[in-house]
Design a protein around this nucleic acid. Structure first.
Length: 599
DNA sequence: TGGGGTCCT
DNA sequence: AGGACCC
């Protein structure tokens, strides 16, 4: 394996990004399944923040004006989604689902509907026992599961008997694709939600490749990633190169604008409504091959923008498919909680007070929901432990703070003077003031209602006066209250690296009952017709009726090691000295752990 | 154009 | 305290 490849793999082999399909709309559909067959849009103020696929089929889009949506699709069903509570709750459930199936708590959240999951193939349970399919799950390691980019392997590779790149990268990605498929089906079985997944070796690549097959499918970026010796370009370069520069995660509106301006030699025409004009598109390929382009040039392009010091190097890396950022460990609580609302016009102190009170109540409720736990919380998380704790019933539920915000921040946005402004809405207009979070808000003995009133009068109104010293003259279009500067409270658990091995054993594989229809050993390969891309939105699970063609049994069939794989296999296997099963290298460690806890 | 979040300077 | 980025 060459050094470039090692760098692309980042040592982590494989990871996936999970994107829950039209998330807000799915939450409403989960509440009321009758909505599934109707065009459904979720509204915040004047816009459609998301809509289901039936609505998209009829021409609706995300971030469309409500007016426009109603014009295009008069019978659209509209749900109000300004209160995020139910979405946040659903998001937590989905995070918990993936976390319990992942070693080392390597599940990072990006917003409410996106997760990054670092696969841990050393510890994941594949093919643990060839004769007992209930341990782990079986799969055909000679194929990728589900759609890939490119769809077919490079022809030149097949001719090449040596298959230089047929390495741990291949194995890791194949495995990643099967693991993702397994987990997607688990998700669909156990929750009302569906997800779209991208599998690759970095956040950058996994996120982008996941966009290729959108609802309810997965896509894996195939090797070879880097250029091979015979001059074939790698798939990373060909895949990334086609993307418009602003589509690359990490290159936002401002940086994309600077790059386009430099490449085009003029300001792009930015129609805020139509997006970027076709002739102003600048692809990654064009940027990368622009004369003199490199980290130094990029630093020059970004000079004076207040970006981090090493931004040129970082962006050059992204353009070349290099993203070394680790999947973060899932945090026990957020590092900031904020509540905001927008208004047509708030212009006097009494209206401000009227708006501050409900916002503050919501903030305090959120602090209780997200930053506290029951004193005996961890003992009560599983049914098993509940029985043991039952001896002490009735249990006194004492709450305690897990995290403690030390700062309170008030932000406002003023309505811009109503100039028929052709200029872009580049600056956000928000201003803020902060102060220490008063201690009394952490009291468990007073009601949220009482605490909120006190907080508004004692703390937030004074903050507001500092923020807007002039008695009048402000026209607020937004107020935001935030609890920030979060500190971990003493005594909270150190949610370190994968401690509950027992729980992982219980969760890594399907329950035995799910395999009750399976023969103990299946020796045929998974056929094409089993893959999701063959049903492409045709078959769905309808209200509790499970579509058998999508179940574990159909998708996760076994391929025996000895026939297809052994002679030309690039996947090393070891024979287990205890049970005699052939174990791929990546599962050896997990397999031995399996034996060690089996007794 | 919403109601959230992250990290960096 | 603000500004970039993300969804």
């Amino acid at each position: 394996m060459n050094a470039e490849l090692t760098s692309l793999m980042g040592g982590s082999q494989s990871m996936s990004t999970w994107d829950y399909d039209c998330f807000y709309a799915s939450v409403f559909e989960a509440e009321n399944p009758a909505l599934k067959s109707l065009p459904l849009a979720v509204q915040q103020k004047q816009i459609v923040v998301t809509c289901n696929y039936e609505a998209r089929r009829r021409g609706l889009r995300k971030l469309q004006l409500i007016k426009e949506a109603k014009r295009i699709c008069p019978d659209v069903v509209i749900m109000l989604g300004e209160d995020l509570t139910k979405f946040r709750d659903a998001s937590k459930e989905l995070h918990a689902f993936l976390k319990k199936n992942t070693w080392g708590n390597r599940v990072e959240k990006l917003g409410f509907d996106e997760l990054l999951n670092r696969h841990d193939l050393q510890n994941s349970f594949f093919q643990l026992d060839k004769f007992d399919p209930t341990v782990g799950f079986a799969f055909d390691a000679s194929t990728f599961c589900g759609p890939t980019y490119p769809a077919e392997p490079c022809p030149s590779v097949k001719e090449d008997g040596e298959q230089l790149w047929f390495s741990s990268l291949d194995v890791g990605l194949r495995l990643g694709s099967h693991l993702a498929n397994y987990l997607r089906h688990q998700l669909e079985q156990h929750t009302p939600y569906t997800a779209t997944v991208g599998i690759s070796t970095s956040k950058l690549l996994a996120k982008l490749v996941g966009n290729l097959n959108k609802p309810r499918l997965q896509t894996t970026l195939r090797p070879p990633y880097s250029a091979t010796d015979d001059g074939q370009g790698g798939n990373v370069a060909s895949f990334l190169g086609q993307h418009e520069i602003g589509k690359i995660p990490g290159i936002g509106f401002k940086m994309a604008h600077r790059i386009r301006t430099h490449i085009l030699g003029r300001e792009p025409n930015l129609d805020v409504y139509e997006g970027l004009a076709e002739e102003d598109n600048v692809s990654v390929d064009v940027v990368r091959s622009f004369p003199g382009m490199g980290p130094v040039k990029l630093d020059e392009i970004f000079r004076g923008g207040g970006w981090p010091k090493d931004i040129g190097t970082k962006v050059w890396g992204l353009l070349n498919g290099v993203d070394d950022t680790e999947v973060a460990v899932g945090k026990a609580f957020p590092s900031q909680i904020s509540i905001e609302d927008s208004y047509s016009q708030v212009d006097n102190l009494q209206s401000v007070r009227n708006e501050l009170l409900p916002l503050t109540r919501k903030l305090l409720r959120r602090m209780h929901a997200d930053l506290t736990e029951d004193e005996e919380g961890e003992e009560l998380t599983t049914g098993h432990a509940t029985v043991q704790a039952g001896r002490h019933l009735p249990v006194k539920r004492k709450k305690r703070w897990l995290g403690c915000p030390r700062t309170l921040r008030l932000s406002t946005r003023s309505r811009p003077p109503s100039l028929p402004d052709v200029g872009h809405q580049l600056h956000s207009n928000r201003i803020s003031k902060s102060c220490p979070m008063p201690r009394f808000v952490f009291s468990f003995s007073e009601t949220v209602e009482a605490l909120a009133e006190r907080l508004v009068e004692d703390t937030i109104v004074p903050l507001f006066r500092r923020l807007h010293p002039d008695k009048s003259g402000y026209k607020l279009s937004l107020i935001n209250i935030a609890a920030t500067n979060m500190m971990e409270c003493a005594g909270s658990e150190n949610s370190g690296v994968g401690q509950d091995i027992g729980a992982m054993f219980r969760n890594q594989g399907p329950r035995p009952t799910q395999f009750s229809n399976l023969p103990a050993v299946c020796s045929h390969r998974v056929t094409e017709s089993h893959f999701d891309n063959q049903h492409h939105g045709l078959k769905h699970v309808v209200d509790g009726e499970v579509d058998q063609t999508r179940g574990d049994a159909a998708v996760l069939e076994w391929t025996s090691d000895e026939d297809g794989e052994s002679e030309n296999s690039a996947t090393p296997h070891d024979e287990c000295t205890i049970c005699g099963a052939f174990i791929p290298w990546f599962a050896v460690q997990a397999h031995s752990i399996y034996h060690s806890v089996q007794t």
